[in-house]
Design a protein around this nucleic acid. Sequence first.
DNA 1: ATATCGATTATCT
DNA 2: GATAATCGATATG
Length: 225
Amino acid sequence: MTPVSARPDPAVGNIRPLPRAFFARDPRRVAREILGKLLVREGDVRQGDMHRVGRVVEVEAYLGEKDPAAHAAAGNTERTRVLFGPPGYAYVYFIYGNHYCLNVSCEREGKAGSVLFRALEPLLGIESMAHARKLSRIEALGDPRRLTSGPGRLAEAFGITRARDNGSDLTSSQSSLWLGEDNFADAAVRVSPRIGITKATANPLRYFLAGNRLVSGPRLRSSSG
DNA sequence: ATATCGATTATCT
DNA sequence: GATAATCGATATG
């Protein structure tokens, strides 16, 4: 008879919001360090919605006006104004007539720069994610990559839209969508060129956790600390 | 496993 | 009018 001394590890412990200063830096630094952090969607309890939490496993850095692949290269327009605002806010855009994608603003007011979220590892609220993605429980558990691997997929799994989330403060746990950290241990990071762009394609600005199955696209590029 | 292609609309030229 | 920080389906090895 084994003693019931050890509870099973919870998927995630206490989650602390990331401070604004975390985002007030070069997007390359933010991208590298945000791997292993958590994206949280607070459930709408009145609609029987569960909280959704995923661990960030793949991101890309966009460097602002000087980066030809960045939306900020078009200047401060109605669409891109969040990128030019203060750090730590959600920039959500609509692409290919079908999908939303989530960024967090970096740098400082007046200086654009952001990190695009490309893949998460689902931890809590998997059934809500599956529902949002129009997948059965079986399909979601059988291949979690269909849930949150890819920027469009993770946005859909977390119910992220421009109308709902663009401009919201991702450093406040009062927000419906926010970023936090638990005590996740540092893991090996890999770097590769960014995906889906046609300009500045050679720059290694895609960062992902080595060996993580939720990473979208190629998983075998250059090693990095 | 990789390759190609259509969907569908906000934004910019 | 063209393009896009994508996805899912289909075809093929």
